[in-house]
Structures are given as C-alpha cells and as structure tokens.
C-alpha cells in the first residue's frame, strides 16, 4: 500500500513541470495551446520583461545558452470572431504600418492625407482606417479625419465594376467632384477578394490611382 502511494506521488514532479509547458499534452489541450502567442527570447530579455519570474543571467555567463519562451494567451480566442476578421485584426499594426510606409514614400511630405477602408464588416473597416490614420499621424504627416465622399450615382456605377476598375475610376471621380484637391492624398485599404485575409492598398494622388499591394 505504501509503495503504491509512493508510485502515485512520483509523477507529481512531472506534472508540476508540465504545467509551464505551452505545448499540448496532458495538462493543456490543443485548443488552449493554439490560443497562446509564444515568443522565444534570451534569458536577459525575459528577465527584463518578467523580473519576478525569470532570474537574471549569471554575471560571469554560463556554459550553456538558456532561452526563455514567453507565452501570452490571446485576448480573443480563435473561433470567437469570424476567422477573416481575426486574421486581419491580429496583424493590424504590422500590415497597416507596412502599407502606410509605402504610401508615404510615394506621396511625399506636403500632402494632406485622407484614409478610408473597404471591408465587408463595417466595424472592422473602421478599425483598419483608424489604424492607418493614426499610423500616418504618428509619423508626422498631416492627416484629416474627413473621408471623401462620392455622389450616389457614382457609387451605383462603381458598385457594378470589378475592383481593379472601380478604384481607379473612383479616384478620378473624387477629383472631378472636388472631394479631393491637388494637395490631398487618399489612401484606400481593402480586400479585393471576399475570401482573402491580406490587406491591399491603393493611393489616389492628383487623380491618378496607384496600387501599393
């Protein structure tokens, strides 16, 4: 009986260590593991971020290199929001930052930026356009919160065209209707295919449309 008790207690140490392992296994399901964002860092970086959890590296160094894997649970687990929205929103900073950087390099400094996003879900579209405006503003550009609009007839015509033709035509109409002027640059962010999860962008400058991605 006593030997049995000892045998039952022996795996305790193993399970105690497994509790910190982000990989799926006995203590963590595949779904839980999938909802962790994990990054491998050096011990020094991990100590800087989590001083109470990770001890400082030895001052004289160690023979073996010690890494730390820091895992954070996603705020919104996979499946709680539509998959397409989740992919777009999870990488919003990076994807929008890349596009605004490319746009700013083409348009130069002396323009006033207008930004709009075209996405099936209106709340997500608002998030995309706000992120792009903020990114441009924080880079020191002049940014307007005003979104250029077209007349209802223009929108009816543009809606019937494929995206590759609709956006260049819309760009011309913005200038023709004086929604935009020569000092304005209009950055549009969109998805071209309804199923895709990569943001595209186009720049409307002086009535000329240019695809950035």
């Amino acid at each position: 009986m006593d030997i049995l008790l000892i045998l039952l207690l022996l795996p305790f140490g193993y399970f105690a260590q497994r509790a910190y392992d982000p990989s799926p296994g006995i203590t963590r399901s595949r779904t839980e593991a999938r909802n962790l964002d994990c990054v491998r860092t050096s011990q020094a970086d991990a100590h800087e971020r989590f001083p109470g959890l990770v001890p400082a590296p030895a001052a004289r160094g160690t023979l073996s290199q010690v890494d730390a894997v820091t895992c954070s649970r996603r705020i919104m687990s996979y499946g709680e929001r539509p998959a397409q929205d989740e992919v777009i929103l999870s990488s919003l900073r990076q994807s929008v930052g890349t596009l605004t950087q490319a746009a700013a390099a083409i348009a130069g400094e002396n323009v006033r930026w207008h930004v709009d996003a075209f996405y099936p879900s209106q709340p997500v579209a608002a998030k995309i356009s706000v992120a792009a405006r903020m990114d441009l503003a924080e880079r020191g550009h002049r940014v307007s919160d005003r979104v250029p609009v077209l007349a209802a007839g223009d929108i009816a015509v543009l809606g019937a065209l494929p995206p590759r033709e609709a956006y260049p035509l819309a760009c011309k109409r913005y200038f023709a209707e004086h929604s935009l002027s020569d000092g304005d640059a209009f950055l549009a962010l969109m998805i071209v295919d309804a199923q895709e999860t990569q943001l595209h962008a186009g720049l409307c400058l002086a009535g000329t449309w240019r695809w950035l991605r």
Binding site: R74, I75, A137
Partner: peptide, 12 residues
Amino acid sequence: EAEGASLVLRTR
C-alpha cells in the same frame, strides 16, 4: 482593439 495577445489603444 485586441490584436493577438495585446490590447491596443489608439487615441486621436
């Protein structure tokens, strides 16, 4: 906005 494991506040 919740972007992965981070919460981002954009103020303008």
